[in-house]
């Protein structure tokens, strides 16, 4: 239970104050996940460090070969941002399916990431966009492949006091399709999701990157399917084979939201629809 709340507005202030703080501590950004565990009495941490208004975490920047998206960006800020729309179309598209408008105004992209849920919509879009994560601990930065520190549901390999500062997405010209199966048409947690980033030329996939949600302990890529599709001219046979391959490289489970068999099937249907879309 929080006893002290420290709120910082810059990284400089945060890093210079950390040494003076000697209690067990936790970062708070949007708080949409933490508030639930707090009200259920599951949060024992005494000191909460509010980083929701740290200015360096709220940047979206075009940086030569990459786009940088700050971890503190609220999900609603992604939908109409021109840099995001141009270079990370999957992320702009994902916002439509991402919780509700009133949650999107609160929740942050970085929170979606560190919460390490297998159904995280923002992480699904970032993974398909080949993003890396930039971690920061007292201005020592590590840039790592996005999914490399996610170890399972709610398990992420961050060092003590380290924060996710933001995400780097390579500037590759492409289009994106984002599909998510929910209990309702909008506003729900995914039963299964597929995001594909691609560039097609004369029905041939010159560039293809696929990520999947809710079919494994974390968001996963579909490397075998990607490898099979790369530089292939899309026709009915290729679509059929790709659907078989993608089903063979996932092993979802039955849980409260859906069944393994259904999840496999829906991923295959999503891939089929997405591939049809790539050829117009």
């Amino acid at each position: 239970m929080p006893e002290i709340i420290e709120k910082y507005y810059s990284l400089k202030e945060l890093w210079s104050s950390l040494n003076k703080l000697n209690k067990s501590r936790k970062y708070l950004a949007g708080g949409t996940d933490l508030t639930i565990s707090l009200s259920y009495g599951e949060e024992k941490t005494e000191l909460w460090i509010d980083i929701s208004d740290i200015k360096e975490l709220s940047l979206i920047e075009d940086r030569k070969e990459f786009v940088f998206i700050g971890a503190g960006i609220k999900v609603s800020q992604l939908e109409n941002n021109p840099i995001v729309k141009k270079w990370v179309p999957a992320l702009a598209e994902s916002v439509k399916y991402y919780a509700s408008p009133s949650i999107r105004n609160t929740a942050t992209l970085g929170g979606n990431y560190v919460n390490a849920s297998p159904c995280a919509d923002g992480v699904l879009a970032l993974a398909a966009s080949q993003a890396s994560v930039v971690l920061n601990l007292k201005n020592r930065r590590r840039t790592l492949p996005l999914l490399s520190i996610i170890k399972g549901p709610k398990k992420i390999d961050l060092k003590k006091d380290e924060i996710a500062e933001g995400f780097l997405v390579p500037k590759i010209k492409h289009e994106a399709v984002f599909y998510k199966m929910m209990a309702r048409k909008r506003f729900g947690i995914s039963k299964a999701g597929l995001c594909i980033c691609y560039r097609a030329n004369n029905k041939k996939l010159e560039y293809v990157s696929i990520a999947l949600s809710s079919v494994a302990p974390s968001i996963v890529k579909a490397p075998k399917t990607e490898e099979f599709l790369k530089n292939k001219k899309i026709d009915q046979n290729i679509v059929k084979k790709a659907c078989e391959i993608i089903k063979s490289e996932i092993s979802p489970i039955d849980d409260i939201r859906s069944q393994a068999e259904y999840r496999k099937e829906i991923i295959s249907v999503f891939l089929q629809r997405a591939l049809q879309k790539t050829i117009g």
Partner: peptide, 21 residues
């Protein structure tokens, strides 16, 4: 969404925010 309020100019659900925020 029944608990939505306008928080610093934007609609937000108040059940997902600690009161101290």
């Amino acid at each position: 969404g029944s608990c939505a309020v306008i928080f610093n100019g934007k609609p937000k659900v108040s059940c997902l925010m600690p009161a101290f925020a």
